[in-house]
Design a protein around this nucleic acid. Structure first.
Lengths: 344, 344
DNA sequence: GTTAGCACTCTCTATTGATGAGTGCTAATA
DNA sequence: TATTAGCACTCATCAATAGAGAGTGCTAAC
């Protein structure tokens, strides 16, 4: 049995109607709403075929059909209108992203909010991958006796400050000296590389200045320890999930919101998209908690280099065309925005 | 009618049993579980009296009784065992809070997590009140052409960095000069005060150095604009609310989680506690969304000055003695920790 | 003042039956 | 041969009903 034109039309009708209504779609409904020029009985026959092919399923004997994961997949791959976004949404994105915002973190969290607003789904935005970000420069500023503020500028423009213990014996010049060594040795290296290969090099350099060493070492540790394992993840519109009829079930909500609190889970969700727009549908997802969800994600770049990803999470029954359009456009404008702001 | 000793014992029994079981408490249950030496019938009579006094109520004719807000209030004020915390919890708090953490923000968010863990409730922690925090020092660091990193150290020890536009024309010395003016003029003033009274003073001072003024002004604006209105609020254990039987209701969950996303709401919740330990029970709360909740909160200090508050939010039926014990102790150790770290 | 006994109330759960949406099959039709 | 009309059948949903159980309030006895 093959997918002919009519089967495709019917499958598309089922998916679209189910996306809109969240109710199983019957043959009669299709005949009425979509003008296919055939009777419900014919549609029933075709639907039986589509069920055999695995694209739709029946929740119970006397209900209409709902798309299976395979059905959604076929829809996304072959039947769907090209991802599109309304000029209204486009406008909003352009206005919102051109509002001058100075810090990357703010841009990111702002993006998460905007994304969830536009899609009515839950948005997940992964900030610059710190492990991959490279060291740019560092400064030490006086803070309190025995402590200093260490300001680290990454190559991607992110700025972080940490309080570090410096012991009692370091003067401002000593600190300056340490910073100089760091800046010379580390510029351009990722923090991962720093940890592995460069640590002992600095160590030996500083050995020459015996009196600095002991305290400098604790600083080094502080730098690397304070650096969290992975990237920061921002969520937006988690509440939107509560509006979806498929989550009118307490246990589902609990396990879902539980997963939301685990950064690791969210990172895994986004990790699929290596490049371009990625769509993961229902059971294609390996994470138990998200088997009833679909994820649309994409990576964004700064100056050509992938530094993070954004995505939306929703019920399997989501408006793929719209969501994909928004995620795609958002990725582009984020990439634009970040690259532009770096050039200035 | 007066509260005699037996009435008090019965009321305490009702509150405690209801806290534990979340089920209306019947006369028979009390006679069985609490050895009052009287029969269920007698207890029934007393319960009728307690209901007349407004301390308990019946969800429906043939159910047991549950405490009213007034009942909880009486319990907390007069009947409850002194707020107490297990030596186990005490230990956890002491170990967790003495882990060396350098930045105030980290301490705060860590506190929120710990608090919700120990109480199985939702924790709300309000960070240092920025409006009330005072300016300490500022530095400018080179960033990119036309931009600088502005590092602001508050008097309470918090450090923030912002990227500011400086236009094309400012040299490092110019920046240094501006910073010096700021540091001299502003040290010790709250940001509120800065905005109102000192702005024109600096303005006039900088007027003397004409070439700096235009650009310095935009920086000033950046400083004050970047400063958010209020304090940052941290939530922990919001999921715990889903485990409470009183929130097995979708509309409640939705409005509750909606309120969680509004920082303003949460701030209002905590604002009650001006000093010491404050307990707000059910309807005493003015916010619609939290009428079924109680809030226990307290303020913490750095060097005698109140800089924030912590609290827990739970269903009206919460274990007040335990929660109050934990919040109280936590406040103290937070105060200790922050004050100690400031002295070093 | 306390208690035992009992009728009464009300929630909760399970059962039942009616309704309606939707299917699958068969036979008639183009 | 493909399509369609007709019809019996299935199953979820909803409302009504009955029975069980928990708990009360009242009365009368202790």
């Amino acid at each position: 049995m093959q997918m002919d034109d009519r089967k495709q039309k019917i499958l598309r009708a089922i998916v679209q109607d189910y996306i809109a209504s969240a109710e199983p779609v019957g043959s009669r409904t299709i005949a009425r709403k979509f003008n296919l020029g055939v009777s419900p009985a014919t549609i029933r026959n075709e639907m039986a075929d589509l069920e055999d092919l695995g694209f739709i399923e029946q929740p119970h004997t006397s209900a209409g059909r709902i798309p299976s994961d395979a059905g959604y997949r076929y829809y996304v791959d072959c039947l769907m209108d090209a991802p599109k976004l309304s000029s209204e949404d486009k406008n909003t994105i352009e206005i919102e992203t051109t509002k001058r915002i100075s810090e990357i973190e703010e841009v990111i969290s702002h993006t998460a909010k905007l994304l969830s607003q536009l899609t009515s789904l839950t948005s997940i935005v992964m900030g610059p991958q710190k492990g991959k970000s490279s060291f740019g420069q560092m400064y030490f500023l006086p803070y309190q006796p025995g402590k200093a503020i260490m300001v680290v500028v990454k190559e991607n423009g992110a700025v972080e400050n940490h309080i570090v213990d410096i012991g009692e014996y370091l003067s401002a010049e000593d600190l300056q000296q340490v910073a100089t060594v760091f800046n010379n040795k580390l510029k351009g290296f990722s923090l991962g590389q720093i940890k592995k290969t460069l640590l002992h090099e600095i160590y030996s350099e500083l050995t020459k200045q015996r009196h600095l060493l002991d305290n400098a070492l604790s600083m080094l540790e502080a730098i690397l320890d304070d650096e969290p394992e992975g990237e920061k993840v921002y969520l937006g519109g988690t509440l939107n999930m509560l509006n979806q009829p498929e989550f009118r079930d307490f246990d589902k909500v609990k396990s879902l919101f539980g997963a939301f609190e685990e950064d690791e889970c969210l990172k895994k969700l986004l990790s699929a998209s290596q490049n371009g727009l990625s769509v993961i549908i229902g059971g294609e997802n390996k994470l138990q908690e998200f088997q009833d969800c679909s994820v649309i994600s994409a990576t964004y770049r700064v100056n050509g280099e992938v530094i993070g990803s954004i995505g939306v999470l929703g019920p399997t029954r989501m408006d793929y065309a719209k969501s994909m359009g928004i995620v795609d456009f958002m990725t582009r404008s984020l990439t634009d925005l970040l690259s532009k702001s770096r050039k200035r």
